[in-house]
């Protein structure tokens, strides 16, 4: 007997949010094309910013200041997304800002995520006193007001990319360490780890060749899901003046600069705000899909 599929309406929404199947599991096979498209556009913008941007992101043209986007009354064809208070092209700044966001995300996730991964594996595998000390450090990191700490860092070390990356890494590593440790605790109990010791493998070797590859999926999913967190953190810190120093374009900084004129020139703050929202939403949806995709229990279905 052939089982006919019920006629399914093609819906864009379904691409982003897959249908539930009778078993209760969400169908995971569907690739999130829209988030991938958004991410790709932003990555291309970041990679080829100087080629794509119609104007310099820094040069001021005070004659053209505070022009609205092209499709509004008073908008100019020359500035598609309008200009800010210094007459800088918002589109160009947005394109260059993507670069900053992605560089910060890459560096902070490599540093913070890497440290978290290392701490999680070591604490989870070695256990005992090492575990207790490292996990108390993680607790302390969670209890610490991260934003305040970042501001402090900015004051002492000066504003800049390095400060920003360090501040965000300090915010990230603890959650990575805690989640990875939990995973390692259950892996450690498996017989293949015991048998590796029976074979005469040393502790570092077991951590490197037997534990690390087994937590790598989890790590990649964590990285993806945390891109959003990093971008928001970068925007927050730049907004507060502890991040990227002006005039370098950063999305958070752009919002900050537009804040004072939100009533008469709303586009200056709103456009980078929309960009951040889209980016974070896209990476989160992509991360959700990746998590389901890499979960071996769901892969078998």
């Amino acid at each position: 007997m052939a089982i006919a599929d019920p006629p399914r309406r093609l819906s864009l929404w379904r691409l982003v949010w897959p249908a539930r199947v009778p078993g209760g599991f969400r169908r995971t096979a569907r690739v999130p094309w829209i988030p991938i498209a958004i991410i790709s556009v932003i990555v291309v913008m970041a990679l080829f910013a100087p080629l794509l941007a119609p104007y310099s992101p820094i040069d001021q043209t005070l004659r053209d200041k505070l022009l609205p986007p092209a499709w509004l009354a008073g908008g100019s064809d020359r500035y598609f997304l309008g200009t800010d208070a210094f007459g800088r092209d918002i589109l160009s700044r947005l394109i260059h800002g993507a670069r900053i966001s992605l560089i910060v995300a890459l560096l902070a996730l490599t540093a913070g995520g890497g440290v978290g991964l290392l701490v999680g594996i070591v604490a989870g595998y070695l256990g005992g006193a090492v575990d207790s000390v490292l996990m108390r450090l993680v607790d302390a990191a969670f209890a610490f007001p991260a934003i305040l700490f970042a501001l402090l860092l900015a004051v002492t070390m000066g504003q800049g990319l390095g400060t920003l990356v360090i501040a965000i890494s300090l915010l990230l590593w603890a959650s990575f360490a805690r989640l990875i440790r939990g995973e390692v605790l259950s892996l450690r109990q498996r017989d293949f780890v015991a048998l590796a010791r029976v074979r005469g493998c040393s502790a570092p070797r077991i951590m490197l060749t037997h534990i690390l590859p087994n937590v790598f999926n989890t790590f990649m999913v964590l990285v993806t899901l945390n891109i959003g967190v990093v971008i928001i953190a970068e925007a927050t810190l730049s907004f507060l003046g502890a991040g990227i120093p002006p005039p370098t374009p950063s999305w958070g900084l752009m919002i900050s600069e537009g804040r004072g004129r939100i009533a008469d020139a709303w586009w200056v703050a709103l456009i980078p705000g929309i960009a951040i929202t889209l980016m974070v939403l896209a990476v989160n949806l992509f991360g959700d899909w990746l998590r389901d995709r890499l979960d071996p229990r769901l892969r078998q279905l």
Partner: peptide
């Protein structure tokens, strides 16, 4: 020295084959 002894002079097989092998290799 024990690491040298394990696997070469004394070895072991455990109860559960499902978890005795590393799933990612």
């Amino acid at each position: 020295e024990m690491r040298e002894i394990r696997g070469r002079r004394i070895s072991m097989v455990l109860q559960d084959p499902q978890t005795s092998l590393n799933p990612v290799f």
